[in-house]
């Protein structure tokens, strides 16, 4: 039984703003299916009752920093990586389509 359908892959690609054509969807759907199938095998071998799901590769909790201000980046450096800037701000394309 398939772990993931082509339609699900298309949906996820849309959410992730990835433009995939039909042949890419076919290829990725079958590849993801194999990956998920392999991961599903873990469910067969382990008795997960009473085992807390692992959160992190390192068993740490409560890593925090004190509430202290440190120097920010100079604005010129901040904006240097932007495709466009205006008045000290990042310039981005129109957010809404006309009809919305």
């Amino acid at each position: 039984m398939a772990e993931i359908t082509r339609a699900e892959v298309a949906h996820l690609a849309r959410l992730a703003r990835l433009a995939l054509d039909d042949s890419e969807l076919d290829r990725l759907a079958s590849q993801l299916d194999v990956i998920l199938g392999a991961v599903a095998k873990i469910g067969e071998v382990s008795d997960a009752e009473g085992v807390t799901p692992m959160t992190h590769a390192v068993p740490l909790e409560n890593v925090m920093r004190p509430d202290v201000v440190v120097t920010s980046l100079p604005r010129d450096d901040v904006l240097a990586g932007a495709p466009a800037a205006e008045d000290g701000r990042f310039r981005v394309p129109r957010i809404l389509d006309d009809e919305t």
């Binding site: 008045d87 990042f90 310039r91 129109r94 957010i95």
Partner: peptide, 12 residues
Amino acid sequence: RIHGASHSLVDY
């Protein structure tokens, strides 16, 4: 307003 805007400027 966001409607009809040609572009937007962002302050983070």
